[in-house]
Design a binder for these strands. Structure first.
Lengths: 360, 360
DNA sequence: TTGAAAGCGCTACCAT
DNA sequence: ATGGTAGCGCTTTCAA
């Protein structure tokens, strides 16, 4: 019957103000949204009445509903926001999206969707947005279908997604290959790989081949395949490559799990990390052990986060900001063509001082 | 007349599906929102019809309007999101807010409101949120009034704000004083201060007393006052303290503006930076000049960001995450009491190796 | 278990 | 320059 029964407090509305001033709702609405549609004096009178009545201005939700525009784009994360913010790579991507959002007066709705917490369906359903960026949402994640189902513009940054979803990213495999080729060219043959996690988050230590293949993260699989490509080329069997999971994408986690790489007989001479944050952790571990990167051991990262330069880390640079900007634009102004955009941005090997010739 | 004229595409709605299945809107609504209100078979039939008709599920905006809940809390920034994300301190705060938001299935709407870009009024008015966190919004910023006017729960982290706004923060002045007292106790008397900016962003170099006083950022003024307290105590005239603006809160900016501190006759023996990011920049500049922190010059930061530990930076630790969590909670469940909460979280001086006795 | 009615608060359109 | 009308798409209450 009456919405008020829902427990909402009675509040002043457009109508209240209109009645008070003795004009129509339209006019009050115009006072806020189209100042040029009424004369200044009336507008002032309306605002004055609004103040008196404690009318807070047009309701944002109602306005969105009527206008058919939410004024926000949704960023979906499957990790906790805490992690998302913690990695400078993510931050770079977000900055990119934010830039284009800012330009069009659009907000960014962060939609946390970590494994245990809450119901992904509800989170997606209730998000008041004009489109979504899927950001590190693994292939099989339930959120993906829900989001598609909402029928809003959608962009993903995850490589092997459904080809019907617009995509912006990099050539994961080729880029990883560059990193590994660099190492191989320097003569390294005993190589280890550091990843965040293969199966669920939290799993640490060496990962079996099966586990690697089972990873739900396409980007990860792509990078591993790239490493493998380069190693195959020189006859290094992938089975001989120890793949170690840090458990999560954190510098300290990587440092501690580095024990599985550094403290073993026949220590690898090179470590490929699938992200700079992990690589920096490996470097920390090296330092603790008195190993000099570039001389005693070589370390290559991925991303080229700001901190990588300071650490003189050899890494693969990907244009994180540009990725974010492209993704943002694609959501804000979906191309009308039939063809689904699939954009690959260029990457580049940045050689600094953490890599050097393989020690004999 | 007809809303469709607005240019919106015709889409399937609840009603469409209801008609197709031959039930009422209520029943379809229940199928989505209250599964226990109808039998399984009917629910399936409804979903099936929805699929066939391309009905994307209940519209989030309409649902929000009807329910009176937006399902998001607004985070207002007056800098570009790019900067906001770039500082680990901000990130720590955001992580805190995110944590409590996640727990209650609430999203975070980032509302960019940088000086030049777009209209703050529009941004605030259109934000579909249940409350706001004001985050580094200077005292006189127009956004503040607009947000208040919306009448939603509101929390600020900026100290000397309107006392009618719930506040969570730290004792800026006392904390800064701790930092300066530490320096003073080590015998330093020639002291410089590094700030991000006093007046508008972008102003760099030494700042006059008038400029310092005119700063619109209460936190900054509080910290400067704290430094001054400690220096006054030992007879160091504040006029003799060179306050240098980096122009913005960035490590590289601080490094380059450090010239105004390090490359002058009678070089200061200690530098107080109002944030760790700036302090790290000062350290970079010291390194370039071959100055050893803790021996040739002392540097103190503020915040205790993760990077500070790695750099062995002496600093004032503030609980950024806790600040965020408290702020989030205060917005999500505004206390019903009359008294406006004003929470000050504890801080702590963390002495590492960038400070040492004043060189003679 | 299902449905009819009653709006949530607003803005676009057209007419005056 | 101002107003009347007609919904935007949904959920809730109450009754059947």
């Amino acid at each position: 019957m009456d919405g008020r029964v829902d427990g909402r407090a009675k509040r002043a509305t457009l109508q209240t103000v209109a009645d008070e001033v003795g004009v129509s709702r339209t006019t009050v609405s115009n006072a806020y949204g189209r100042p040029d549609q009424l004369n200044k004096a009336l507008r002032e009178r309306i605002f004055e009445a609004a103040r008196r009545l404690g009318y807070p201005g047009p309701d944002a939700t109602a306005r969105s509903l009527r206008r058919g525009r939410a004024g926000a784009i949704g960023l979906v994360f499957t990790e906790t926001l805490s992690y998302a913010f913690a990695d400078p790579y993510s931050v770079g991507f977000l900055r990119g999206v934010a830039e284009v959002a800012e330009e069009s007066g659009t907000g960014l709705l962060l939609i946390p969707m970590p494994p245990g917490s809450g119901d992904p369906e509800t989170a997606v359903r209730n998000a008041v947005v004009d489109g979504f960026c899927l950001y590190c949402v693994p292939g099989g994640h339930p959120a993906k279908e829900l989001i598609r189902a909402r029928g809003l513009p959608l962009v993903t940054t995850d490589e092997t997604d459904d080809p019907s979803i617009p995509y912006v990213g990099i050539d994961e495999r080729g880029s990883a290959r560059m990193a590994a080729e660099h190492i191989v060219r320097l003569g390294h043959r005993r190589v280890a790989v550091m990843v965040d996690h293969v199966s669920g988050p939290g799993t640490t230590g060496p990962a079996t081949l099966d586990e690697q293949r089972a990873s739900d993260c396409a980007d990860l699989r792509g990078r591993l395949a790239g490493y493998r490509d380069a190693l195959d080329e020189v006859g290094v069997a992938w089975e001989s490559v120890r793949v170690v999971a840090a458990g999560r994408n954190s510098r300290t986690a990587a440092a501690s799990q580095s024990a599985h790489i550094l403290d073993v007989a026949e220590r690898p001479t090179a470590v490929l990390a699938i992200g700079d944050v992990l690589a920096l952790g490996v470097l920390d571990a090296c330092e603790q052990r008195g190993l000099v990167p570039g001389r005693d051991i070589s370390v290559v990262g991925f991303d080229d986060v700001p901190e990588a330069e300071r650490a003189r880390l050899t890494t693969v640079r990907q244009p994180m900001g540009e990725k974010g900007r492209m993704a943002g634009r694609l959501v804000l102004e979906p191309p009308r063509e039939e063809k689904v955009p699939r954009i690959k941005l260029p990457t580049e090997l940045v050689v600094r001082t953490t890599t050097g010739p393989a020690p004999r």
